[in-house]
């Protein structure tokens, strides 16, 4: 695998191989567990055109724990603010001799565009592009589910909230359906377009109605920054209809797994008692994020099997 642009282009076998590899990396480089050298001598660049703290740090730590050199080129006061184009910026960075670029961009398709402009040996890893895909987030969510539930096939997983704008939702839908899970997308019809059925998912607009059937509930973040007009009347009404709270938890299976890609809006899509409760795997997601990103970097920039 040269690039990771999304989970949609991958096969079930590709995804399973990445998850299996990630399992072996959980805990690597932490405490007494030594780092690895899969990326020894490789220069890995993070290039984030959209603000992000945790995903960038997670990728940087992942590369270092595999022995890679890491350099951040995220523009702040750099050349793109002087009018340089995206492609020129990246080609300039490429000329410094990089092996992989981890890119986050507000424009859907920006990582794929890079693969057409960079030299053949440079790996492009999508760290989130517009509303398109966020494949490592999808993988870490799926890994967390697999660890807790033992399998993916046959599970019923609800994705709740803004499907229209969420790249996390898309990567989860593609990954989970390929591995045989039943996916329910649940949210107001303004944020759940009917065409989503063509991805092989069930559409629902009543969270209370579907909750008893769910093995996993993944609460997507309400993306206030992406709202262009009134998709719902108020945050309070959203929380009333789609927020996960202690009362709703009573309707769910006792072993329901609660995920949230974060950063979470406490009191909006999830209340603190649920976020910090026994069914929540929110912090496990963060740990698995590192392992998944190590697996992705080793498989792409590391050039093959570990």
């Amino acid at each position: 695998m040269k690039h990771l642009l999304g989970l949609n282009p991958l096969s079930a076998a590709d995804i399973t191989a990445l998850l299996d590899r990630a399992e072996t990396y959980v805990g690597v480089g932490v405490g007494d567990v030594p780092k690895r050298d899969d990326l020894k001598g490789k220069l890995i660049v993070t290039l984030f055109f959209e603000p992000s703290t945790r995903t960038k740090i997670s990728f940087q730590l992942a590369a270092r724990r595999l022995g890679g050199d890491v350099q951040d080129f995220s523009p702040g006061g750099s050349s793109t603010s002087k009018g340089e184009t995206f492609i020129d910026t990246v080609r300039n960075i490429e000329a410094m001799g990089i092996d992989a670029v981890i890119v986050r961009h507000t424009s859907s398709g920006a990582p794929e565009m890079l693969t057409r402009h960079l030299q053949k040996h440079v790996s492009v890893i999508n760290a989130g592009d517009g509303s398109h895909e966020h494949p490592t987030q999808g993988l870490l969510d799926i890994l967390t589910i697999r660890q807790r539930k033992g399998t993916i096939a046959g599970l019923t997983v609800a994705l709740v909230g803004d499907i229209l704008h969420s790249r996390v939702a898309r990567s989860n839908i593609h990954g989970l359906t390929k591995l045989g899970a039943k996916v329910i997308v649940c949210g107001p019809p303004t944020l759940v377009p009917p065409e989503v059925r063509q991805f092989g998912v069930e559409v629902a607009d009543d969270l209370d109605d579907i909750l008893p059937r769910c093995d996993v509930v993944n609460l997507l973040r309400v993306q206030f920054e992406r709202q262009r007009s009134a998709f719902f009347p108020s945050v309070g009404e959203y929380a009333h209809l789609f927020g996960m709270n202690g009362g709703r938890m009573k309707r769910a299976k006792s072993d329901v797994l609660i995920l949230a890609p974060g950063p979470i809006n406490r009191g909006v899509e999830i209340t603190p008692d649920v976020a910090d409760g026994p069914n929540s795997a929110i912090l496990a997601q963060v740990e698995n994020g590192l392992a998944v990103r190590m697996a992705v970097l080793a498989t792409t920039a590391g050039g093959g099997r570990g």
Partner: peptide, 18 residues
Amino acid sequence: TQGGVMSEGEVSLRLGLR
């Protein structure tokens, strides 16, 4: 059509394009 960059449908939804 505000902010739209392609026709609305299954393809735009999949690509995450408005």
